[in-house]
Amino acid sequence: MSTATMTSVAERQVVAFRLGNETYAIDISYIHEIIRMKEITFVPHAPHYMRGVINLRGRIVPVMDLSARLGLPAHEETAQSRIIVVEVHGESIGMIVDAVSEVLRLPEDQIEPPTQIAGNESTGYISGLGKINDRLVLLLDVEKVVERE
């Protein structure tokens, strides 16, 4: 959600994270919490991008491999890897990302529609392209990402 600021241009607050070489971002209102990697119980016969389930303080929360979901090449987990737990329509789901960088404020006028992005598989899950200084930030359409295929 955009918080009221003194500037005349509305801003969007997002959590930025790294996936491969690119920076993605999720609207902060979806974020439930960000946790370190923990043991994931594999769930057979689940969609290919689902890694399994974790125990989040007594709740069973499914975790997806966001790279796999977006059709990006697979890569190693590192000490920086995190699980971003988002809440969509009252249900939690975790997403594995390479590293969480920061909370950004994106002015609305710096966000372009996704049609501007060169076509790759992830395009369908991108709601916009943000620019902050020289950096490009891909805004993730969270509801689309968590929707089951």
Binding site: T41, M50, N55, S92
Partner: peptide, 26 residues
């Protein structure tokens, strides 16, 4: 405990539970 609806119906699995060591078992 029920599995998340994001996982859908899993053939052969009815739900999950949390074990004494905190891990999840199907």
């Amino acid at each position: 405990k029920s599995l998340s609806r994001y996982l859908g119906e899993i053939n052969g699995v009815s739900g999950a539970t949390i074990l004494g060591d905190g891990r999840v078992a199907l």
